Deep mutational scan, measured.
Amino acid sequence: MDVFMKGLSKAKEGVVAAAEKTKQGVAEAAGKTKEGVLYVGSKTKEGVVHGVATVAEKTKEQVTNVGGAVVTGVTAVAQKTVEGAGSIAAATGFVKKDQLGKNEEGAPQEGILEDMPVDPDNEAYEMPSEEGYQDYEPEA
Score class of each variant (00 low, 15 high):
residue 100 L to K: 03
residue 80 K to P: 02
residue 117 P to K: 09
residue 137 E to R: 12
residue 24 Q to R: 12
residue 85 A to G: 06
residue 63 V to Q: 01
residue 44 T to Q: 01
residue 4 F to C: 01
residue 36 G to A: 09
residue 116 M to I: 06
residue 49 V to D: 01
residue 97 K to M: 10
residue 81 T to F: 14
residue 82 V to M: 10
residue 74 V to W: 13
residue 27 A to H: 07
residue 62 Q to N: 07
residue 66 V to M: 12
residue 52 V to K: 01
residue 124 A to S: 07
residue 79 Q to L: 11
residue 102 K to N: 15
residue 125 Y to K: 12
residue 27 A to N: 08
residue 1 M to T: 00
residue 117 P to M: 08
residue 50 H to A: 13
residue 64 T to V: 10
residue 20 E to F: 11
residue 9 S to F: 15
residue 55 V to F: 10
residue 60 K to E: 01
residue 90 A to P: 03
residue 55 V to S: 01
residue 85 A to S: 04
residue 120 P to I: 08
residue 3 V to C: 03
residue 130 E to Y: 07
residue 103 N to S: 06
residue 133 Y to C: 08
residue 104 E to S: 07
residue 28 E to P: 01
residue 63 V to H: 01
residue 89 A to T: 09
residue 25 G to K: 13
residue 90 A to T: 11
residue 6 K to T: 03
residue 12 K to A: 08
residue 39 Y to K: 06
residue 60 K to N: 02
residue 92 T to W: 15
residue 59 T to H: 02
residue 126 E to D: 10
residue 135 D to I: 12
residue 20 E to H: 11
residue 38 L to V: 07
residue 67 G to V: 10
residue 105 E to M: 08
residue 71 V to K: 06
residue 134 Q to D: 07
residue 94 F to D: 03
residue 65 N to S: 13
residue 53 A to E: 07
residue 59 T to N: 01
residue 50 H to T: 12
residue 75 T to V: 13
residue 140 A to E: 06
residue 89 A to F: 13
residue 70 V to P: 01
residue 102 K to Q: 02
residue 27 A to F: 14
residue 11 A to W: 15
residue 31 G to A: 09
residue 83 E to F: 12
residue 17 A to H: 06
residue 6 K to M: 06
residue 69 A to V: 07
residue 10 K to P: 00
residue 73 G to H: 12
residue 3 V to S: 03
residue 107 A to L: 09
residue 117 P to H: 05
residue 30 A to C: 07
residue 99 Q to N: 09
residue 41 G to I: 06
residue 48 V to A: 04
residue 23 K to W: 15
residue 95 V to S: 08
residue 43 K to V: 14
residue 42 S to H: 07
residue 20 E to M: 10
residue 126 E to G: 12
residue 60 K to W: 09
residue 65 N to Y: 09
residue 54 T to H: 09
residue 70 V to D: 01
residue 54 T to S: 13
residue 79 Q to Y: 10
residue 95 V to N: 08
residue 2 D to G: 00
residue 82 V to T: 06
residue 19 A to N: 00
residue 58 K to V: 09
residue 38 L to M: 13
residue 43 K to L: 13
residue 71 V to F: 09
residue 114 E to F: 12
residue 93 G to D: 05
residue 101 G to Q: 12
residue 134 Q to V: 03
residue 26 V to K: 00
residue 122 N to T: 08
residue 127 M to F: 12
residue 24 Q to W: 05
residue 99 Q to Y: 09
residue 15 V to K: 00
residue 76 A to H: 10
residue 113 L to Y: 09
residue 74 V to G: 02
residue 52 V to M: 14
residue 101 G to A: 04
residue 13 E to T: 05
residue 132 G to Y: 09
residue 54 T to Q: 07
residue 48 V to D: 00
residue 51 G to K: 05
residue 71 V to C: 04
residue 36 G to F: 05
residue 122 N to K: 15
residue 95 V to A: 10
residue 62 Q to F: 08
residue 48 V to P: 00
residue 6 K to G: 01
residue 8 L to N: 00
residue 66 V to Q: 01
residue 77 V to A: 09
